[in-house]
């Protein structure tokens, strides 16, 4: 039995096992429902007609995520550098920032920014300039990233494999962005959306700030000394020695924070509906007009699972790759 067939059989077995467990769980739940006297009639086919609504919501959710994540990472870096600054007051200020936002619920931060500041400082509607064929550009970017990651293995691939890889990559990225619900460019972003981005960005930047700081501090002081002894200036020490090593420590919590951010974007529904995934489901699930409420919400749950689970798996895979390849190398420091 080759390794391939073994892997295939294993995954099939796993699928069977989890399906069985799922069926048992669902059966238990249905029994509980019936025991509690439910006489609900399920109408899945009627609910599934509304999938296009969900897709539109998915687009809004993802757009909110992309912008908030960018803001959170940038602010987080700034906060981390402030926390590591040699000036006490700067450190303390950043520390207050971090501890305040980490101890508040995300919803409260959102409300504070939107209703508190948002009413005082109304933001203009920003129009993102239209980029033609943005899917192709984004697809090309994806290919470039993957090519960079593969650059060492590239030389050892045969010509046929290289061609196959290129074609499949191009195809996947093209399809991905053709069907993508994200537009990002050429549309208006209104006041609500912008304040949402600011609120989520600021909130998550407090967590990311700590993550970045811990990562940078995890690089042993002796590494910095060695780099300095070569005559490197601050930027060179950071760029060539500290950050590459810090990145390995930062990546796992970074990805988990970003995954949490995707889930948090659902909160914007509570402020104002801007048509994100949760909002769309709520608009659909009006008991008087469409009484198949349970189905609508189950589909909503499935949509979130469909986004978040692949992201989690991806982040675990990344950690694994980084862990194996770099963990050995990082353990060079001996304790005398």
């Amino acid at each position: 039995m080759t390794a391939r067939t073994r892997a295939l059989r294993y995954s099939l077995w796993m699928l069977f096992r989890f399906s069985l467990a799922g069926v048992v769980l669902v059966a238990l739940v249905v029994l509980v429902f019936m025991g509690l006297g439910s006489n609900y009639s399920f109408e899945w086919d009627k609910a599934l007609e509304f999938l296009s609504w969900y897709n539109r919501g998915l687009g809004v959710t993802l757009e909110l995520f992309v912008f908030s994540a960018t803001l959170a990472v940038s602010l987080g870096l700034l906060v981390a550098l402030m926390r590591l600054s040699p000036w006490g007051p700067v450190r303390d200020l950043a520390g207050l920032y971090v501890h305040t936002f980490r101890n508040l619920p995300a919803l409260v931060v959102l409300l504070l920014f939107f209703f508190g500041l948002g009413q005082i400082i109304p933001l203009p509607t920003i129009r993102a300039p239209a980029l033609p064929h943005v899917e192709i550009l984004l697809g090309a970017a994806l290919v470039a990233v993957y090519a960079y990651v593969l650059r060492f293995k590239w030389k050892r691939l045969s010509a046929g494999k290289k061609a196959a890889l290129l074609i499949s990559l191009a195809g996947v990225s093209y399809l991905l962005f053709l069907w993508s619900p994200i537009t990002l460019f050429g549309k208006d972003y209104n006041n609500i959306f912008l304040w949402g981005v600011i609120a989520f960005g600021v909130y998550e930047s407090s967590y990311l700030g700590e993550t970045f700081r811990a990562g940078i501090q995890s690089v042993h002081r002796t590494q910095i000394e060695a780099a300095q002894s070569l005559g490197m200036n601050y930027l060179q020490v950071m760029g060539y020695v500290v950050l590459p090593q810090a990145l390995r420590v930062i990546l796992p919590p970074l990805t988990s924070t970003l995954v949490a951010l995707v889930k948090e974007t659902a909160l914007i529904y509570l402020v104002r509906g801007i048509g994100d995934l949760t909002d769309q489901a709520r608009q659909l699930a009006v008991p008087t007009r469409r009484p198949y409420i349970f189905e609508f919400y189950t589909i909503l749950v499935c949509y979130y699972l469909a986004i978040v689970i692949p992201l989690s798996v991806l982040s675990q895979w990344l950690e694994g790759k980084l862990g194996i390849s770099k963990a050995r190398r990082m353990a060079v420091h001996h304790d005398a």
């Binding site: 609900y40 659902a266 949760t278 489901a281």
Partner: peptide
């Protein structure tokens, strides 16, 4: 892997009030 908000909505409006 789902937001708590979605779970609350699912539990209350989806199950408690519907089913």
């Amino acid at each position: 892997n789902i937001p708590f908000l979605v779970f609350v909505i699912f539990t209350y409006f989806g199950i408690a009030r519907a089913v």
